[in-house]
Design a binder for these strands. Structure first.
Lengths: 333, 333
DNA sequence: TTGTATGCGTTATCAC
DNA sequence: GTGATAACGCATACAA
């Protein structure tokens, strides 16, 4: 691999000049520039980004830490980040890390990507690494939380109003006459899920009902676990009128459980869920849900981070709250 | 940020010694080591991976270039890569790039990640950058193709037998008595899709039927485009008995089109598709499909690349062909 | 058992 | 208009 020295030698100039034509960072006489460009082409020279990063202390790489790229919510969010960064015209790349809600895994990822000197971080924290993250933020390292935040860490964040969206969803169920409403809760250490549970309780309380602990089933956040959780919901005695699923994997597992029990929705039991799917229309039953603007959340996170990286914004962290959309379909009865 | 010099000074040793305790690369007296470790902790020293990469000419970063992480096929594949790399105990990270089947975008991504000196590349090529990739391979840069390959570029690859799987799928349709079988084809520059079309033609030919060009509809590979393509299929006159969808987005779009036209499947028209979905059971109609082992494809790709990186395997490129699974459900009638 | 010194390939500061 | 050269932070060959 040719280096900048080789180019300089071949063009009969100094490395400084080559560097400057490469970066367009100072005037170079047209004829000189031409010779340099020719040498670059001749040698098929490619600048070494690692050496460059070392010198400039900036890598052009951003870390994205989420729980599961297989979740359409996150893949959509990721796309929002990627498209936005590209649209900004930066040659930034994204290192994607899936924590699967595991704090140790998250910690390990944090260690290695920080060692790699990423310029900034976008993350949906799994919880459990508050101290580490607080230390990062304290030394001004750019961090943006997305989907979830950590009360112990003050950083830029983009979220939705989970509590109010959940409240609306459950109120809708109450409006349709359902009273015995179960909740299938994903057990993540995520404040977003906690807020959704609160919204559920709010709605019940507003209807003069108490949240019955027996009506709550917890499940790990993957489809298989949610399926088992869904069975548990259906096996409650007496069977609930309706069930609120706290995220899209819960909904998918719940629907699978309905199938397994040969029950039909909404006839036998109604269902509402947090999160929509890209292919919701091909689903049966058609799910009544709250859709999060996942792509836009990624987009906003990228913009927040970019503003910090470019020092276009300094000072205290800000919170961007994006609106959700209520989609009334068949599953709510 | 503390550097290795700071640590050396504080511990009263040379930088060489610090480096060696960091990398466990030569004997260091226990007491000395202890002082170094203490200094590291005291200063909260973190090694600079960029400087390290420059010196070692190895970054611990792998590029993954695919067309669309929102496609469950690819997100599953990505997970397979990630889990496998982690399981190998390497501190490798993955830079994920979505090309959206755009050769220019792919080229740009290639440029920037090569400049970042990734150690290797796993890619599902969009087509159009054969020369660039061939040059990479020629200078021994580790490249693994996955899902698709490029006839002009000889590199390790992991694929499935697309042609035979498609043939089986279409023969199944013929077995069920369907004769006028349309094909909804994703227009990618991917040999995998070409093989699927051939399989479709094989099956028809074997049944003594000619592939009628009128029965083929091309569509870009996203759900919205496939929806429009699906409408075109349904508007053929006379309407086909059945349709073969060449990938999962085609299937999704086709189903949406059925809905829009108020047609039911398989009663009005049968359907089979390449690729299964993680939540296929919640789909209506239940799709008869060929499932690809997407996660395992990612896994195998990671293993192939790893073997190259560690020089455990040298010599000519190899091809790993993984088996597909035929899933007969309702949509085929 | 440990230390010294060189170089990895750039960028940027001076200097002319 | 252009050039010399000192860092950036680390790993390692060579010395002691």
């Amino acid at each position: 691999m040719a280096t900048i020295r080789d180019v300089a030698t071949m063009a009969g100039v100094s490395v400084a000049t080559v560097s400057h034509v490469l970066n367009d960072s100072r005037y170079v006489a047209p004829e000189t520039k031409e010779r340099v460009v020719a040498a670059i082409a001749e040698l098929d020279y490619r600048r070494d980004g690692i050496a460059r990063s070392l010198r400039r202390s900036e890598t052009g790489t951003i870390g994205v830490i989420i729980s599961d790229i297989k979740n359409p919510f996150f893949s959509d969010l990721y796309k929002g980040v990627e498209d936005t960064i590209n649209g900004l015209g930066e040659n930034q790349n994204l290192i994607l890390c899936n924590t699967e809600e595991d704090a140790d895994k998250e910690r390990k990822y944090l260690d290695v990507i920080m060692e790699k000197r990423v310029d900034g971080l976008i993350l949906a924290p799994a919880g459990g690494n508050e101290d580490y993250l607080q230390a990062l933020v304290k030394r001004q390292f750019p961090v943006v939380f997305v989907d979830r935040s950590l009360s112990a860490v003050r950083a830029d964040q983009v979220v939705v109003d989970n509590r109010q969206a959940a409240r609306e969803l459950v109120r809708h169920l109450l409006d349709r006459g359902h009273r015995r409403i179960a909740i299938l809760k994903a057990t993540l250490h995520a404040d977003s899920i906690d807020r959704r549970v609160e919204g559920y309780e709010d709605a019940l309380r507003a209807a003069g009902l108490a949240a019955d602990p027996c009506l709550r089933v917890d499940s790990a956040s993957d489809i298989d676990a949610a399926y088992r959780g869904g069975l548990a919901v259906l096996d409650l005695d007496p069977r609930p009128d309706a069930v609120f699923c706290t995220n899209n994997f819960m909904t998918l597992g719940m629907v699978r459980a309905l199938d397994a029990r040969g029950l039909s929705c909404p006839a036998d039991i109604a269902l509402v869920g947090f999160d929509d799917f890209p292919w919701a229309d091909s689903f049966r039953p058609r799910i009544t849900a709250v859709a999060q603007p996942s792509y836009e959340m990624g987009r906003e996170a990228a913009l927040l981070l970019h503003a910090r990286l470019r020092k276009q914004r300094t000072g205290p962290p800000i919170t961007v709250t994006l609106p959700t959309t209520m989609l009334v379909r068949d599953s709510s009865g």
